[in-house]
Amino acid sequence: MSAIDIEKNGDVPMLEAVNLVKTLGGNRVLDGVSLALPKGCVKVLIGPSGAGKSTLLQCLNFLLPPDAGHISLEGRRVNGGSKRELCAFRQKVGMIFQDFNLFDHLSALENVRVALIKVKGMSKLEATERALAELARVGLKDKATLYPANLSGGQKQRVAIARALAMDPKVMLLDEPTSALDPELIGEVLAVIRDLAQLGMTMIMATHQISFSASLADEFLFMDKGRIVEQGSPAELLGRGSQSRTQSFCAKISELTGVAGEACELGDIKA
């Protein structure tokens, strides 16, 4: 069965975090965060910078091991102390970074292929086929031989998405996937993310693209000072008459950027 599945229900959440706490440099960056991602669900993390969105995402795949709390994948608790278990878990949890983090010495194809060979133990031929298929999915098959230095930001992020998808993840964590992009390149990356959501990929994404995520998200999670302070469907939080902090935060962003305006006006919002 493919990792991407249309089915959205199921009793056990795909990914669940309970009471995560993380202290960095004396600051309690995560102060007891719990969340559950049901299969096929898209949740969007928003909130001021420094709220702990990025820390939360990195704790979810143990890039930053949480100080307290636990994480379960499909109901099975992950033992962050076991290297082997951690590697197996991370294969099932794809991560997209704000600054892409493509491997600079490898071509687009090799970027997508390297973990298939080294981690999944695929043959070079098999891995190449799979990598080309993933590159084709993000519309970059013809750029397979190019190196990161010769790709645009949007293309880099699409390669990074292909690289994560090649591992057949069950969940995707997206950490501000478009924040480092020039405005004219954001669209191509958002289109890929929208395709993924439509195919039923379970995702959690930190972003400032309010109007885009309002049309995509099942739930908004508004974070501040290391806690999730509000959560609900985009319609509930952003709809007319809503007095939510999410609403006033989005209004503030839209004043600054003019981008989120129509979202806050309940245009294309997912109810």
């Binding site: 290297k83 983090n101 973990a115 990074a160």
Partner: peptide, 13 residues
């Protein structure tokens, strides 16, 4: 540092 984080996130040791 992101290069290592990306590699770890793919399941590499």
């Amino acid at each position: 540092r992101g290069q290592i984080r990306a590699a770890l996130a793919l399941g590499m040791t």
